[in-house]
Design a protein around this nucleic acid. Structure first.
Lengths: 318, 318
DNA sequence: CTGAAAGCGCTTACAG
DNA sequence: CTGAAAGCGCTTACAG
């Protein structure tokens, strides 16, 4: 039996007689034969692997539960299609360079770009390279060059601010996320959508990171600027946990004195006291859709940017 | 200039004249040429990739900060050597099968096995396959078949129990980890090392998982069995956070009524109230050493199991 | 349906 | 030091 016939069986069994097919399958089962993947990749010009690139200081991989959800759902969705996930950190310029060299070596069929920032050179390079790329969140400045899967940040933020007003709050402020990310920009836009001219400059403080500590600092600044605030929409649950710490230290009760709304519905939302009213972002699905979109692109299919709905989740903090 | 000369330059520049070397380097810089990795792998029989296999229900990837530290330090240590990390989940039998098929396809040069359990078929298969493997923690039942990097669980547990006794506690109990993992077994052994015959069967409850919830349940059982306990050594910080919740609900103060000691010195140790006295496990270094040991093995070098020292960290819970 | 053969893009003895 | 050539282990038109 020729090498060619075996190969045909292994690749779907088209154009093979049932007899040959059975014989090969028996032999494969008996010997535990598995095709060498480098040779296959070389012949097919497909690696069967995809890079998951974290464009972010690595601390965030530690701290932010959102990444774990995304990483897990992507790994799983890829595994179901027998594609492997290569984890790459691209926080420093050196790592950055390594990622680029890596994709140029045709080591991967595509790239999952997570948490991109405005002016991120990797996004530009990736889209220029022609390699299939899908970003999580709309990549600021490259909305049309790179496909993406995002949650409806703006709509979710609107729902939260309306909820806060519906609770009778008069002075609704916000701790915005860093404004070099689409999540940061969009959630702030949603805030303005609802409050319009009623929002004053002092009611808004943009945090200098998506971390607990950044939320803590931003909340302190906000309290100084607006001592009589009675509500705050914080652009992520993790930052909101920091905001809660600041409020507690300042002697303000939640939700008595101040109603606090978060965003994400991540694990921390229920770990803090009081549990956070927040906006649920379907990150599991974001991961799945990113994988679908990427593999479709690898297969040469068209694809539209995806925006997934968000949902208000009311708990005890508002 | 021949393909062979270019290849020699790219692979270290041995046996190449300075003139040729400079010319090639100039050309590479100008064109951005990067060798195709499949072709290189096929020729060298090295993939330049390593699998990071999580032998665990995936929830743990979400919940347990220890994994993030390990994942990050391995990714980083590998990247420094230009080796790629492939993340594989092996929680279900199907995923399991996929991992095996994958390594048989010679897709990776080695395997980092994280959080193995007693009777884990993957460990046996991996060691039998001849593929270089390094486990985190000593793989129960395969201590001599598979190289490993572990923390000194037993010594750390001893230090904690001695600390508890040093605080004047009379009834020192323990919530042990699952007894099908080396961490669970060793930390319990350390407890017995110190208490010896003073420990009674009722003083020990083994949790049915390494989670917050499992710690919560185990602590409840322990309180029923030993209502007058005044100290508990919990085998992980995450489980200890669950134990704290149970104690709070039962109206016991910490450390007033009950001293609580954890293990790991993970992020949760300082997130809970009161901050946990715990045993620091140098997970960053565990990851680094795992990578070193694995790559040495790939290069055909010998290697000994590594055990890293642990350290007592005293905070407010004892 | 099947086999023989070319080709995927490298690396590495081998001669020189 | 360098080039020509074999070989790594597959896939896939191409004839038949």
């Amino acid at each position: 039996m020729s090498r060619g016939t075996v190969s045909r069986v292994l690749n779907g069994g088209r154009y093979v007689s049932t007899a040959a097919l059975a014989a090969v399958e028996r032999a494969v089962a008996a010997t535990g034969y598995v095709a060498n993947s480098s040779a296959r990749s070389l012949a097919t010009r497909r690696s069967g692997a995809v890079a998951f690139v974290l464009t972010e200081p690595q601390e965030r991989l530690f701290e932010d539960p959102n990444f774990h959800v995304l990483l897990r759902s992507c790994t799983q969705a890829l595994a179901e299609r027998d594609v492997v996930l290569m984890l790459m950190l691209a926080g420093t310029p050196a790592e950055h360079e390594r990622v680029l060299r890596f994709v140029r070596g045709q080591h991967v069929d595509g790239m999952l770009l997570v948490s991109t920032h405005l002016g991120d050179p990797l996004v530009a390079e990736a889209s220029r390279s022609g390699l299939p790329v899908v970003a999580s969140g709309r990549p600021l400045g490259h909305e049309h060059d790179v496909r993406s899967v995002a949650a409806d940040d703006r709509g979710g933020a609107r729902a939260m601010v309306e909820h806060l007003l519906g609770r009778g709050r008069r002075r609704v402020t916000t701790v915005a996320g860093p404004q070099d990310t689409s999540g940061g920009v969009e959630r702030l836009a949603g805030y303005f959508d609802v409050l319009g001219r009623r929002a004053r400059a002092v009611d808004v403080v943009a945090a200098d990171g998506w971390t607990h500590d950044a939320g803590e600092r931003a909340m302190a600044r906000l309290l100084e600027q607006v001592p009589d605030l009675d509500a705050v929409f914080v652009a992520s649950d993790l930052m909101a946990s920091g905001a809660l710490a600041t409020l507690r230290r300042a002697g303000r009760t939640v939700p008595g004195d101040v109603a606090v709304g978060g965003f994400d519905d991540s694990r921390v939302a229920v770990q803090v006291e009081p549990a956070l009213t927040t906006v649920r972002q379907p990150l599991e699905e974001v991961g799945r859709r990113m994988v679908e979109l990427l593999l479709a692109q690898v297969a040469g299919e068209e694809g539209e940017p995806v925006v997934l709905p968000t949902e208000l989740v009311v708990r005890s903090s508002t």
